[in-house]
Amino acid sequence: MSARPSSRPTESTAQTLTDIVSVTYLNRDNCSFTEKNGFLGLRATIDKREASLWEQHLTTDEAAVGEKQELVLDRIFLSRAFPFEKPFEYISVFDKNKREIGFIRSLAEDFDETVCARLMRELEEAYYCPVIQRILSVKTQRGISYWQVQCDFGETTFSLRDVYVDMRKIEGPNGELRLLITDVYGNRYEIPNANALDRQSYRRIELFL
């Protein structure tokens, strides 16, 4: 994530690291998602080694044979490991006690279309982040800036305590400038490419860029 120099010899340690840590990768073969009252649940087949962590959530069905056991959770949460770069890859699945069940490497590749769409919606709800289409006005007074914007869901206002701290700039490979804005309450807003904004909108924020 941070711009570390990448030219360091990490391969030898990386191998040993993967050897000692076992990450459960969830996919269409070892798990399925359930839904009740709009909340996501999970049925997953996990390694016996990890089963001890989940005692009361295991199915009493002793027919589960071999090294595997089935885990049933009625409420699970998703969170992104790289929210800015890979919003739908490297998704951690955890329960309400914040215990991780496993990782999804890629929603699109590891799950069928309908499940993938449902999980994407779940993520979008948790990471609620409207896209700003037009900037109607930005007023800075006493160090606090007040924004009035046109979002994908309609017009809204928000304020930033410090534009330079609360607006993260991420430069894309093709010269696009992505802006991630966090307002005073912690609400997120996104401008996918500031350079593609209409002229007026761009001029309103030009000074902060």
Binding site: G38, A117, R121, E125, Y128, D152, F153
Partner: peptide, 12 residues
């Protein structure tokens, strides 16, 4: 309660 889908947001 629910968003429309992953790509767009329902009105407030």
């Amino acid at each position: 309660d629910r968003e429309a889908d992953a790509a767009s947001h329902a009105p407030r």
